[in-house]
Computed example of a mutant assay.
Amino acid sequence: MTEDTARAHLQIGQVAERTELSIKTIRHYDEIGLVTPSERSAGGFRLYTEADVERLLVIRRMKPLGFTLEQMRELLEALDVLADPASGPQARAQASSVVRRCRTDATASCEKLRRQLDYAEEFTGFLVARDPAVPKA
């Protein structure tokens, strides 16, 4: 690996900082084959490219919406197919279907989370109104 190549790669700590995922989580994703680092250093350290970081960010965005690891894998594979100009029409159609399904599921999850946030804010307001330590306007 040349010095320029080494600079183009990020070590796992840098990736963890950029993605706000723990090092343990990133290692787990590597162990299960969800996001494999593009290279290893001479010492065996994981080295990640910007594309690897983008894949991890897709996963990070999916986590709070309740997607399973298998759904994450399926979406990443679909995105790979759509990014590959050599993919055939049938593969592209199947990949597009996966993306649409994930978008529908993500939209539903966002709506559920918004409702939960509304309830939480409503409850907080309820408690503030009943707290004797809070001055009344």
Rank of each mutant, 00 (worst) to 15 (best):
E121D: 12
K24H: 13
T107V: 15
P132G: 01
R100Q: 15
E122F: 08
H28L: 12
D131Y: 01
E3P: 02
F123Y: 06
V128N: 02
S96N: 14
A95P: 06
A42R: 11
L10Y: 08
F67D: 01
Q90K: 05
R130G: 08
H28S: 08
T2P: 03
K112N: 11
T25F: 04
A120H: 02
L117K: 00
D52E: 13
F67M: 03
A83P: 11
R92F: 09
H28W: 11
I23G: 10
F126V: 03
S22Q: 09
A16S: 10
T124A: 05
G66D: 04
A86F: 02
D84A: 13
S97W: 10
K63C: 13
A120K: 05
Q11M: 12
E3T: 04
T124P: 01
L10A: 13
A51D: 15
D84L: 11
F123C: 06
S38W: 04
V134G: 06
G33H: 02
A42S: 15
G88M: 00
I59G: 00
S97T: 14
S96Y: 06
V98R: 01
L56N: 03
T49S: 15
A16H: 01
E17K: 13
A133F: 05
G13S: 11
V98E: 08
T124E: 10
T25V: 12
L76M: 07
T36K: 04
D30P: 05
L76R: 03
L34G: 05
H28A: 09
H28D: 12
A86V: 04
D131G: 03
E20T: 10
